[in-house]
Simulated assay, not measured.
Amino acid sequence: MLRVVYLLLGWLCVAVGLVGAVLPVLPTTVFMILAAYFFAKGSPRAREWLVERSVFGPHIKAWEAEGAISTRAKLLAVAMMALVFGLSVYFGVAWWVLAIQAVCLLAAGSFVLTRPAPRESP
């Protein structure tokens, strides 16, 4: 039964990650890494399918092997964070929401930027 739960969580993460590929407010790579984790516990075949995708596989492998994020992915992530914050300012989001958003985005951006680059770039 637990394997089924892990498999469902894995597919949920894949779905949210694919939505994140279109919407700048959801981090695609994080959800794909989570999907790989859940698939490893629930379905090795599904994990292999995900890790073998040319778009996500190298990033997942780099994270699992080295805790690394490619320079391109770092720049894209930080750019999307800045875009979301800029849109929030543009649309007049309340100051206290902007403050919370700024703290969260600064923390997330700092984390992403301080990860090493993979030895072999994905």
Rank of each mutant, 00 (worst) to 15 (best):
F31L: 01
A46K: 01
W63E: 10
L18N: 10
G17T: 13
V112H: 02
A15F: 12
F38T: 04
P27E: 01
A65D: 15
V112Y: 06
S70M: 08
W63F: 15
M81N: 10
V16Y: 01
I33R: 07
T114A: 02
V14Q: 06
A21P: 06
L76S: 12
A99G: 03
R45F: 09
V25R: 05
V84E: 13
A62R: 03
V30N: 05
G57R: 06
E120I: 01
A82S: 05
F85H: 10
S70K: 07
S110H: 11
A108R: 11
V22S: 09
A35Y: 08
L75A: 11
V55Q: 09
M80V: 01
S43T: 07
M81D: 09
A21R: 11
E66Y: 04
Y6R: 03
V16H: 00
P27V: 06
V4C: 03
F91M: 05
M32Q: 14
V25S: 06
S121I: 04
A36Q: 15
V84G: 10
L9P: 00
E48W: 05
V22R: 08
V84N: 15
P116F: 02
G20M: 07
L98M: 10
A21K: 10
L105E: 13
L18E: 15
A62Q: 00
L87G: 14
W49N: 09
M32K: 04
T114C: 01
M80D: 09
R115F: 05
T28P: 07
A35K: 06
L8I: 05
L9W: 02
W96Y: 15
K74V: 01
I69H: 13
L113P: 13
W63G: 04
P122D: 10
E52G: 02
V19F: 09
F91Y: 06
